[in-house]
Design a protein around this nucleic acid. Structure first.
Lengths: 338, 338
DNA sequence: TTGTAGGCGTTATCAG
DNA sequence: CTGATAACGCCTACAA
């Protein structure tokens, strides 16, 4: 790896000058055209690659954004991650990805490792599990770090004092449920979630509120996860019971896809037999024509990245972009559903 | 951020000593118990976090593994990425994730950026697109880097001289096709791929070989991508034609899911009307009971990570783990299919 | 317009 | 057993 000094020697200039032309300060600091050219040439022949490590050490801040995701296999987080990465790249930043499996212990470990790498900021993609033992501990450490100047952004409800760019989860479920009600459905079940998982709990609240207002009976089941697999299991449970509901609102697209998988293979017709919807608007549901609340996941990630990358400048906390209902082919008015 | 010097002062020892107890050399280099204790205490009260940056600068190598993935939204790569991350963490390594969208230009850029960060190694998850303009250029740069000592591992066919841990793609398709033939199917279509994409091309070769040997007519279509969406489109095309084949072999699970999505919504019965299979064994297909060739994606990623992390030690190139047929509920003997 | 020099936090080499 | 001290590669006042 060619170093700055080597290319400085080859170009017969000082490292300072070499540094100036090879890095941003070229415009800020005057350097003659001749020198510029020769330095560039030297850098070229030696195949110079600046050491981000050295730069980071010097400037006390690496151009790295740390990302702590709950489950990179879930499109929900994959899309956020992607949004972060794309926007970060625009600012010359790179992202370190850490999976934490929704385990506070792992989150704590990853958080620490990320800090060791002097990242400019850390993004938490998923929400926390309230009441879980490690959660409080994590919150304490994060709060400490935040007070010490580390930029931390949460893209989902979190119990620590970081910057937050989060969607109104209750509202997503509320509006989605209202839509189902507007189709004439009364018996609407809610499927999916994990006890204590803030985002999931909030969606349940939104669902219950809408059902309560409509004086329709609420039924929540399948609080065994956010995955396709758990959606499938819940659907199996549902079809095993005597009556299918008019409609099913799922906590996310993954669960919805799992529900669809079971229903289709079991011979049900969607939306004739039952309407199904998810939340997220991820690529996962698109191919099935899933009715869903489309959340701006990529944008959300992008906002977090930009916020961190532009730490010095205008760093007002951006407002979360809004979501919207996407009506697919898995939902239909009650008339057609019976 | 507490520095080594600060904690050294607090503990009234030299930074050298502090460094020794706070880092691995504690065992290697003798340090008295008393001193150890006081240093640990000081580090604790000051909340010391080592600077991975400084360590990397000093040791000319950061504990970072760079990952260049084609599409993090594709479970195929997401699983590899996950495997890399998990194994890397075991060695105290962290992974920088870079998406390249199968674009050689982007791959080149990301490759460079990764090198700037002094990563210990770089993993290419996807295969290249032969004939694409940027591919040769990328190969040149990678070869240069490899010769300069950078550890590069490809987990899919690539036209540069890196370490390779790759599955026999032709064999996966060959065996899968043979399985379909063994079920009594004759008219078997192959769906999915991208012209020039090495891995996809090899799978087509395997498929053709099996069909040729069985003297069955080969039909390849839908070379428009590796996504669910493209699988769906191809299936639409297929059902628009007069006759459905006996079975469909897809280039990957994503395409297979897309095919299933269309078939189900169009009212077909699987596997009664047609058998469907994918390649990958990703979580995406699991919930649908998809018949597929299960590839050890997570393990593959793990091997790459381990190979890079243990650069100093026994670094024989690991052999790719083997794949195996997973028979799901989307395939059935011909008798039942007609 | 260019050069000199100090130091970012660590580790490693040498002395004590 | 412990402590100075010199780098690692780069940036940035401060001089020239």
């Amino acid at each position: 790896m060619a170093t700055l000094r080597e290319i400085a020697e080859l170009a017969s200039v000082s490292v300072a000058t070499a540094s100036r032309v090879l890095n941003g300060s070229a415009e800020k600091h005057p350097v003659s055209q001749d020198v510029r050219a020769s330095v560039r040439a030297a850098a070229d022949t030696l195949g110079y690659t600046p050491s981000a490590t050295a730069q980071a050490l010097k400037q006390q801040r690496s151009k790295i954004i740390g990302v702590i995701a709950s489950d990179i296999l879930d499109p929900y987080f994959a899309e956020m991650t992607r949004g972060i990465e794309i926007e970060a790249a625009k600012f010359g930043y790179v992202t370190i990805l850490a999976n934490a499996n929704r385990d506070p212990e792992q989150e704590r470990t990853k958080f620490r490792v990320l800090r060791e790498h002097q990242v400019s900021g850390i993004v938490f993609c998923g929400s926390d599990i309230e009441g879980s033992p490690g959660t409080a501990q994590l919150a304490r450490e994060v709060n400490l770090a935040v007070r010490a100047g580390t930029r931390v952004v949460a893209l989902a409800p979190r119990g620590f004092d970081s910057t937050k760019i989060v969607i109104d989860n209750a509202a997503t479920a509320y509006e989605l449920t209202q839509y189902m009600l507007s189709l004439g459905h009364r018996k609407i079940a809610f499927i999916g979630g994990i006890p204590g998982l803030s985002a999931a709990e909030q969606r349940i609240v939104g669902y219950r509120d809408a059902m309560f207002e409509a004086q329709a009976p609420a039924q929540v089941l399948g609080l065994t996860g956010m995955s396709q697999e758990s959606g499938k299991r819940a659907a199996e449970e549902l079809t095993a019971s005597t009556q299918l509901p008019d409609a099913i609102v799922c906590t996310n697209d993954e669960v919805a896809v799992g529900v669809l998988a079971h229903l289709w293979t079991a011979g049900y017709k969607i939306p004739e037999d039952v309407s199904v919807a998810g939340i997220g608007g991820t690529r996962g549901g698109a191919v099935f024509g899933l009715t869903t609340m489309t959340l701006p996941l990529v944008e959300l990630g992008g906002l977090a990245a930009r916020y961190i990358a532009t730490a010095g400048g205008s760093s007002d906390v951006p407002a979360p972009p809004s979501f919207e209902l996407h009506i697919g082919s898995t939902s239909a008015p009650r008339g057609q559903s019976d």
